[in-house]
Design a protein around this nucleic acid. Structure first.
Lengths: 350, 350
DNA sequence: CTGAAAGCGCTAACAT
DNA sequence: ATGTTAGCGCTTTCAG
């Protein structure tokens, strides 16, 4: 047999270096290596240099698992969310991540399945007591929030629960209700007799915030309150929800629970031969990136999801470390962005 | 001082129960509890029942960290991806998750920052040797893939590297090149003299697959090859990239690197007074959910990202457990979906 | 400044 | 069928 061993047997370590290997090679105690890594406790410059050199040499990387197990500093958060392809959740997530990363936290994400139970949620935590953020805009998120063990340090971005008198101090939300009311009043001000509403799925058993705001405004103005239409999250669901009404000339203004629904609604209306905004005004919710480029461009409520996500992390940070965490950053209130999809009611004198 | 202690001192465990607590209360050894939990080794039905009861009582939940540290079965994957708000990445992620969850793996996600370096990627792994999937459609993803330590078991969804003779067996991809060529030939067949292209950012230093496919088709047909336009990922970037050309009547067909770009392109064209598809045909890439509902609805290349994600996990699974992992599922090839945004060239006799 | 010892919660290998 | 013994890789004590 030829001697080829020394080529492939190039001293490849079977398993990556541990803190002990570094200590051994550097000729110091394992504890000293730990000190160098964490910058805690005083170590002579010389020793530190040597240790760092060996770390480089061996390609040593600390094992997070072990560190956490041993009760090291937390510095990590898990975000529980469902369906990252929805704009609101994705944008909130971005805000959370940015803030967490900036504060030196590493962030992991775990996606909730629609059918996930209580047991399942607990299962996702690496260890009891891990820090968690929840994006609870839909049913799965709300359930996850509810089934989180009470001892875990957490903060959540939620749809505000209607009538919550003493809101959980570890939750943040946008004032969807006021925003929906504002958008509705805007449409009424254009001369529309009433406004129809296509709802996104509710995260609560009660009326969702956006639906309530819409109803608030209609009631306050003494206008007829149509039955809300039930959409999902997708353009397709908006299309299907509105198709039965699309041709009805008495329907002149539709508010949608999100921009994707609005897209489907506009298509259903066009297919029914109606012109937007001439015959029908459509207003969305979210101001997602495509909204400004649609045809017609979409009047919509801009929501500061990223800011909300940053604030949510701010809350968590203060909870974990009340002494040193900076103040929770503010976020923007919802704002109506008027574009091409809304106009005075047909036949109105505006 | 009044005696209120027994009210608040309600025996609340300061820290959650460990396997030892269960063992102690159940009057068995800690190992027996482990056996019950994992269903390994024989335990008498009686003992098992008692242990389970105590587990329930104490609300005991195993600590994943400790389990992993101790070398327990892996059953967990981390997905590295950048920007989950892009349709392609989000859909791939969904496929990966579904497949992994189905196979009994828990999946965590870590989002790559655009500027993340080599060191940073290694940092995200909980322990050396953790199983990883990478979604490498953009620069950050490709860099992460490259800087992954060679010993980690991984699989990746990638844009195919041009000219890769021996493709990595742990990678999956869609044939973007052929799909782009097909879409381009389709436009030429409608009588367009040539086709312009708005590119998404490249993940490689070489020409991206979609750009190549487009060029392939043009060259094969002996048509002029315009300089590709460089877009980003957003509708806005498509809008900005095309605006300079939008009014040019010699531009009658534009292929876009994704649907969002196409949205921006269509708007730029309309603002320049051009009618779609009468004056200008626009074709997208991805067939994202909104595509069918746009005005006009978008002709686009449907890409099976979810299937690709499932296949990617299949690959990883076989790598981790060649004996028992099922065959890697197939995924669909790209398919051109013709809708309203494309039509015969103006003045053509088709 | 540095080292030794104990233990985080769990599983795998040996006992019995 | 169950218990005992080692670690996994790290961070806290506590001693020098």
């Amino acid at each position: 047999m030829e001697v080829t061993g020394h080529i492939s047997g190039e001293d490849v370590p079977r398993r990556s270096a541990s803190i002990w290997d570094v200590a051994r090679v550097a000729g110091v105690s394992q504890q000293t290596v730990s000190r160098v890594i964490n910058g805690k406790g005083r170590v002579s410059a010389e020793t530190r240099a040597k240790v760092l050199r060996v770390i480089e040499e061996l390609g040593y990387r600390p094992n997070k698992l072990a560190r956490m197990l041993a009760g090291g500093p937390v510095r990590s958060v898990t975000v529980l969310t469902s369906d990252t392809s929805l704009y609101g959740a994705a944008a909130t997530l971005r805000g959370m991540e940015e803030a967490a990363r900036t504060a030196g936290f590493s962030v992991g994400i775990s996606v909730l399945e629609p059918g996930s139970g209580q047991r399942d949620v607990a299962e996702r935590l690496n260890r009891p007591g891990e820090a968690v953020m929840v994006i609870a805009y839909d049913d799965a998120g709300v359930r996850a929030l509810a089934s989180l063990p009470p001892d875990v340090p957490m903060a959540a971005a939620v749809e505000r629960r209607p009538g919550a008198e003493a809101p959980d101090p570890w939750q943040v939300w946008l004032d969807d209700r006021a925003a929906a009311a504002h958008a509705t009043r805007y449409l009424l001000s254009l001369g529309h007799r009433t406004v129809h509403y296509v709802a996104i799925p509710s995260s609560t058993s009660d009326l969702p915030q956006r639906t309530q705001g819409w109803a608030d405004a209609l009631r306050a103005a003494g206008r007829p309150l149509p039955e809300p239409l039930h959409g999902g999250w997708s353009p397709r669901s908006g299309y299907l929800a509105v198709r039965p009404l699309a041709a009805d000339p008495s329907v002149t203004a539709i508010l949608c629970g999100n921009d994707d629904l609005a897209l489907g609604v506009m298509r259903a209306a066009r297919e029914a031969g109606r012109h937007i905004p001439g015959d029908l005004s459509v207003v969305g919710f979210d101001d997602s990136p495509p909204a400004a480029y649609l045809n017609p461009s979409l009047t919509t409520v801009r929501l500061d999801f990223e800011g909300l996500g940053r604030a949510c992390f701010g809350l968590l940070h203060r909870r974990l470390d009340p002494q040193n965490a900076p103040a929770v950053p503010a976020w923007s209130e919802p704002e109506l962005i008027v574009r091409e999809s809304s106009a005075p009611a047909p036949g109105s004198t505006f």
